[in-house]
Design a protein around this nucleic acid. Structure first.
Length: 327
DNA sequence: TTCCAGGTAGTCG
DNA sequence: CGACTACCTGGA
């Protein structure tokens, strides 16, 4: 069953640039698959699998956002629209954000570089947790490939007119997956051909030493972490909670809370954000990551997540990033 | 071919 | 507590 509708830009505040939002390297989950002019992904709406295709002609901010959703069961348009709004931050008031950025001479230049860039939230918090762990000390190319492989191997497959799509596996399933070739072999029956290639294990997805973090994190999420509760508690408490997961340090914790749980006051500090903050605000000092995080949270408050996003994209496009490369 | 980027966990003082 | 380093993979 197909649901098709439009969202008028009058329904949200400030501009939207959908391609920019997808391609700004945000660490929540892999970007959606592009087909023709549509970005598409399988998401759960009211617990029902739904292939959502979204398109926006970014050249004109007056244009409507076009949505085509394909589902096996009936899913109300209103629910799909709400999910889209959450995921692409359509309820975020960018005009207000730009007023805030404009007040700080260090941040004002980011506005022109990032028109319509919005926080791209995860559609599945657990996928976001695993993505964030996989992304640590790792290139975007590599961890997105890993997540794609994990979905194909252990997710549930759904067939749509434009192809097969997979859900991200549940914590229960992922917590019980073999860590590496040896473990997969030990679990198998003995009558395998000599040249059998083991590939149904986590390390075969290219996650490296993070495989055991992912498995142990899955088990904790499955047995003792209430994701629904996590979404409702305050940022500070949530931060300390997710910090306890193996493979989750301060940077990954903040990515999980920002992208997976929509906590805009999180300020994820990677090596680049640290260098950018030093360059802009502490030109003759070297900060520790923790100090950069505290500075950002205090100075940017509820906008911290957006400031991080805007600073990084601005630095990348303006050439600042290149000039800050190692030292 | 070797080298290196990139957060976290573990170890040492 | 702070400082230092091993960890895995793939792209340069």
């Amino acid at each position: 069953m197909i649901t098709e509708f439009y969202i008028s830009p009058k329904e949200f505040k400030g501009p939207l640039n959908l391609s920019l939002t997808f391609n700004s390297g945000q660490t929540s989950q892999p970007p959606w698959q592009k087909e023709n002019k549509y970005f598409q992904e399988l998401i759960m709406v009211e617990d029902k699998p739904c292939l959502v295709k979204i398109r926006h002609d970014d050249s004109n901010p007056e244009n409507d956002v076009h949505i085509i959703a394909e589902s096996l069961e009936n899913v109300p348009e209103k629910s799909i629209k709400e999910r889209i709004g959450e995921i692409f931050g359509l309820t975020d008031d960018l005009s207000q954000l730009y007023d805030f950025l404009g007040e700080d001479p260090k941040l004002a230049p980011t506005i022109d570089f990032c028109q319509g860039l919005r926080l791209f939230k995860a559609h599945d918090p657990f996928e976001c947790i695993v993505s964030s762990i996989s992304s640590s000390n790792c290139s975007i190319l590599r961890w997105t490939r890993s997540i794609r492989d994990i979905k194909q191997k252990w997710g549930e497959k759904f067939r749509f007119s434009s192809g097969d799509f997979y859900t991200f596996p549940s914590p229960k399933i992922l917590g019980d997956v073999p860590e590496h070739d040896l473990e997969e072999m030990q679990r198998c029956e003995d009558d395998l051909p000599e040249d059998y290639i083991f590939k149904n294990n986590l390390k075969a997805c290219g996650v490296g030493y993070r495989a055991k973090y992912i498995i142990n994190t899955s088990r904790i999420v499955e047995s003792e972490m209430d994701m629904g509760k996590l979404a409702k508690i305050k940022y500070d408490k949530a931060f300390n909670t997710v910090l306890e997961l193996p493979g989750v340090g301060p940077k990954v914790a903040d990515c999980i809370l920002l992208y997976g749980f929509g906590m805009g006051e999180a300020f994820p500090v990677d090596v680049w954000i640290k260098r950018i903050i030093e360059h802009l605000y502490f030109p003759h000092e070297e900060l520790k990551p923790q100090e950069a995080r505290e500075f950002g949270m205090k100075k940017f408050g509820d906008y911290a997540g957006y400031v991080q996003l805007y600073l990084f994209h601005y630095a990348r496009k303006s050439g600042l990033l290149e000039s800050l490369r190692k030292k």
